[in-house]
Amino acid sequence: MDWGFIFERVMTAAIGPEVIVFALAAIGLNVQFGYAGLLNFGQVGFMAAGAYGVGMAVYWLNISFWWGIGLGLVYATVLAMLLGVPTLRLRADYLAIVTIASSETIRLFVRWRGNSGRTGASEGIGEFARPFYDLNPFDNAARYQFGPFNFLGRDLWVVLVGWILVAIALLLVWQWMRSPWGRALKAIREDEDAARALGKNSYVYKLQALLIGGLIASVAGMLQVIQKAAVQPDTFNPVITFMIWTILILGGPGRVWSPVVGSMIYWSLIVFLENVLRQLPPGTRSTLESTIKLSDFNISQFRFILVGLGLILLARYRPQGIFGSREEMALDDR
């Protein structure tokens, strides 16, 4: 087994595009769940909104890619209103139900053949992100190596822009959460009725939190499809939402940095595990093939199985994240 190679892979992944995309989406979820207590189980829908915004601007409306960013934000806003307006007056479960239902519906809708002229249906959209890469100060096709990190020029550009976006998002969240607005939001998370009794319009606050979180996730979706250079409906599998949840809970909801930390840990683990499994010595490999039906196909399923297992264990034993204090957990009386 080539440990050096695996180390390089893991380190590169730890600051790579996927970590950024999921960190951004988790920052959005942190606003929604970590601070406002909203059960958004359809974060991937917001990512799709952003992604299809940039894709459809180019493919359907024939306008500039840059306008597409605006279109994506508009889509995310519309989605937040559609999901939030009917449910946020009601018990928390209803938002959960509607959002989990919506993300799969969105996927089915964009891949509907009737939409092939607008969304490219099941084929999706390609060739839309050129203007982004035209601005790349690095050589798109060259490889760049520094320390254990190894990126293609185009990815390096995505990573650079991505981390700037993450920094902006973190700064915004930090400022919001230290302001009276954030205080009201946290109060709503702790007890909505108490906040209402004290004159806070909890409905508006929750809508705002859902919207902010959704907008940040839509930016994550844009970045993701820009990096992949394709908008594909099946990228937005509902299970992505729960990867984001796992990441957020891993880092500890309600803390500014946790989405970034969670995303790094999560992807390092996944990349490490998958690389180890793929490089198993032939003997071990064939044993696993015959006993637990290991195959190349199945290795790619491991991340989902781990997400499931991880969510169960985290939710059961460490809902405040792996760094969360036991004390704080004891206060969690929701």
Binding site: P180, R183, A184, K186, A187, R189, E190, D191, D193, A194, A195, A197, L198, K200, G254, E328, L331, D332, D333
Partner: peptide, 15 residues
């Protein structure tokens, strides 16, 4: 309805 994971002074300021 004390807001458990907020400090006492934050509870007050909220009002």
């Amino acid at each position: 309805k004390a807001l458990s994971r907020m400090t006492v002074v934050d509870n007050m300021k909220l009002g």
